[in-house]
Nucleic acid binder design. Structure first.
Lengths: 223, 223
DNA sequence: TACATAAGTTAGACTAATCTAACAAATTAT
DNA sequence: ATAATTTGTTAGATTAGTCTAACTTATGTA
């Protein structure tokens, strides 16, 4: 079944929202509309269409849930998006915060061969430049335990695993701090007053980062 | 000025037609509609819009001509198309006849940085996989003398420069004959009866190729 | 030159995706 | 439990790109 550019975007949005609302992989009409930057009325219309095509299951005034087919399609788009981001970052020297916008366009290119060849060309990467897992051709996607920097204690050591907040402002700040995926971070002190913490970056500079910062970064704790 | 996907296609079609009708770089409504696979009425509507935007110059029942701006835009799209074709062919192992369809989609991606970085990544190629020149960022495009294989005499030697016919059938036939851009060809004999000729390919196999074949291949004659 | 044919245009309709404004249902708070 | 608020839907309009059918202009040939 052929999906329009727009339909694909709705499916991807729904998939992303289902990741965000981990406990219940459902979404509301307003939530979805806000995510996509359209009005709720528009979302309602599209939902009817997607339901017609059996890509979402939902009933009037109820919650929205992707069907198996819908999910499969959403994952295929996410796969393309993340592979293209990796391509732009690794091969074309795009910076961390530039890749997303272009990948938003590239993810809609239709060609199964292209995606698979691109994956091969990139040497079957597991993660995209933001540290998010890239789904395989069959839909498999490594689910990795996500620990926030804010959950660690003074003395803990970790590697940066992914960014939770992908805003340009945050990504540029990370760049300024010379923090990238894999960077080693040691918590030297947690300030109870405001939740900020002192961290040692790459065995070098010690910086104070805010609570907000610590809640925007996923890490992998080391023993 | 932001052009829609569709508007871009009309401009590119017009540019292509202007190359085809070398003498007069004009096009007719039906010609254009046929090229794009739409009805003449549709083309007329779009023409009005393009005229409004000063991308084409034309008046009712008259011929269609690209304005300077229209041409500039068309060339930018052609540049993207040919760079992507080169990428697919050289980096992702697409075959000669597979690249076009995907490049038709990729050429509409909006990102000046992407195009320039791609060009750099490909090492500033001069020609695409079909032997057509790739416009530079400033719009320059090498105009090369185009000699058809059919114009050569018995005894002449040449290198394959480009394909005139880009149909899948022709490209696959070339592949079968192991002819690609740069392949050396020597005309051993021209049969007056049907215009077919015997040609020696890469100093090896001698084959008989039809008049139609000889008129579909551009070559560069050697002294 | 006149008429037949080809080329091009217009009018009116359709579809997809969007909007605004008004309404209905569900949830929350008093 | 009822009112206020939030959430979601409907109806009607708009825009871009397309179509068909009918019409108009230009061209070419007898």
């Amino acid at each position: 079944m052929m999906l329009s550019y727009t339909e694909e975007n709705y499916l991807k949005a729904l998939l992303k929202l289902s990741f965000q609302n981990e406990d219940k992989p459902e979404a509301g009409t307003n939530e979805m509309a806000a995510y996509l930057g359209v009005k709720p009325a528009t979302a309602t219309d599209m939902l009817k269409k997607l339901k017609e095509k059996e890509l979402v299951s939902y009933k009037k005034y109820g919650k929205i849930l992707l069907t198996e087919t819908g999910k499969k399609n959403g994952i295929a788009i996410l796969r393309k998006h993340r592979l293209w981001e990796t391509f732009l970052y690794e091969k074309l020297d795009f910076s961390w915060d530039e890749v997303h916008e272009v990948a938003e366009q590239l993810e809609h290119i239709q060609s199964a061969k292209l995606v698979d060849k691109l994956e091969e060309f990139l040497n079957f990467p597991e993660f995209d430049p933001h540290g998010d897992p890239i789904p395989k051709a069959n839909g498999d996607m490594p689910v990795i335990a996500k620990t926030l920097l804010s959950e660690l204690q003074a003395g803990d050591v970790c590697h940066v695993a992914a960014v939770k907040d992908t805003s340009t402002l945050f990504l540029q700040y990370l760049e300024k701090l010379q923090i990238t995926i894999g960077t080693k971070i040691r918590i030297t002190e947690v300030i109870d007053f405001d939740g900020s913490r002192y961290v040692e970056i790459s065995d070098a500079a010690v910086r104070n980062v805010s609570m907000k910062f610590a809640e925007s970064l996923f890490v992998q704790k080391l023993l």
